[in-house]
Design a protein around this nucleic acid. Structure first.
Lengths: 223, 223
DNA sequence: TTGACTTAATCAAGTGATTAACTAACCTTC
DNA sequence: GAAGGTTAGTTAATCACTTGATTAAGTCAA
């Protein structure tokens, strides 16, 4: 497997191919059940390269989570940036509050699209696995995007619900996330109950509409 | 490992010990990563008994899910029975509608307690795993309790939202389930964001209050 | 003695890691 | 600008170890 490119690039190609292959293998089997040989075969390289480039199986596993973090971060970036901008100017008119609800609806739309996207199935599986049995990989996920995202959303909801304690607001945010998460974490049940064979564009629209309505109902002023 | 009990009982003891040990091992590692030897050691029996009693590793895996299904079913039984009773008499007074919301709050309280219970951590992990990569074990779960539970809840919500289509109601139910599910599926994130080290009784009460409020907000007449 | 139950021993296959040998681009040095 | 050493990258072969399954022998209440 030798290409006619500069030596420094060849290594990068192998690294990326290994991470991509490992993402698939670690997701479809678990960490222990995925084998270095299968990963290397899928990447089209020799399995000794895993030790060479990543120090071993665990190093490759962690590298996969760096990649996952970047991808999810970039998917949520626009919606999170809009929220950060709004937080900078703490206006409290009624129109401003409505605008904040719209921003949250936008974020949860991004979240639903993230969870529904078949392309992120493998990544989502790995994240869920880490939620159940966190390893050092979970720290990567939390530091890279979870912590900041949750903080910002909680800050914004706090502005909508100034009478609530911080913990109450945090709990509300968690349940809001749950409404989107369920479409990934319990996907098979969802598909069976709704008698869908997959989440196609039409189904995605129905979900988005429901989540949008829920966010409004749970955050609109009157209660 | 020979007790002085009738032969017919000895087999049962081994079977149950193996299922219990397998529940733990399959959850803490995955199906492929859990080894028959570790399971047998934990159960205190010889690993050849797995083949003898269950035909092999896969048979044991399926037997574990029969046990899980029974346990979850029995936990949800009271709340589901109350809903079934209410469905039998389709009254539509305002008081009856309020009563239905209370029944749903009761069910989701059971669901939250289920997901929060540390004793069902291993079972929940296995169910989540099957959601991501369903095998024949998922069919057991769905047939044994998921299908019926979702049907009943959806039926009840349909009575509260007669103007909505069946699919819309089903989606609403799914998002309601998500509010409870998140405390299991994203538990590590939840604990970190709220800076809890575990879900103790005080925290459980806070969660129950939030979920109860959400159910009310999403199902109360005005919208 | 029968028969359900249980065990230790063994099997081929697959595991992660390591090693020495090989390749090819790069960098001096003359 | 060729020669030759340097280096990162890559490979096949091999290591000790674990895997699920099988088998023949053993246990013990009925």
């Amino acid at each position: 497997m030798h290409t006619s490119s500069p030596a420094s690039e060849r290594g990068d190609v192998s690294r990326k191919a290994l991470i991509e292959a490992a993402l698939i293998e670690f997701a479809s089997h678990s960490y222990h059940a995925a084998s270095n040989r299968d990963i290397a075969d899928r990447a089209g390289v020799n399995q000794a390269l895993i030790a060479y480039h990543f120090g071993g199986k665990e190093g490759l596993y962690l590298a996969v989570f760096e990649t996952i973090s970047e991808r999810i971060q970039s998917r949520l970036q626009p919606a999170l940036q809009a929220i950060a901008d709004n937080l900078a100017q703490s206006e409290s008119s009624e129109a401003a509050q409505e605008r904040r609800i719209e921003l949250l609806q936008g974020l949860f739309e991004s979240l639903v699209r993230l969870f529904a996207d078949p392309g992120l199935k493998t990544s989502a599986q790995l994240v869920l696995q880490e939620q159940q049995q966190p390893t050092r990989a979970f720290d990567i996920l939390y530091r890279r995007f979870m912590c900041e995202a949750l903080q910002r959303v909680t800050d914004l909801v706090q502005l909508l619900r100034p009478e609530k304690s911080r913990d109450e607001v945090s709990l509300l945010v968690i349940t809001l996330v749950g409404q989107a998460l369920v479409f990934r974490a319990a996907r098979t049940t969802v598909l069976r109950h709704l008698q869908w064979d997959d989440i196609k564009p039409a189904q995605l629209q129905a979900i988005l509409q429901q989540v949008r309505a829920n966010v409004l109902a749970l955050l609109s002023p009157q209660d």
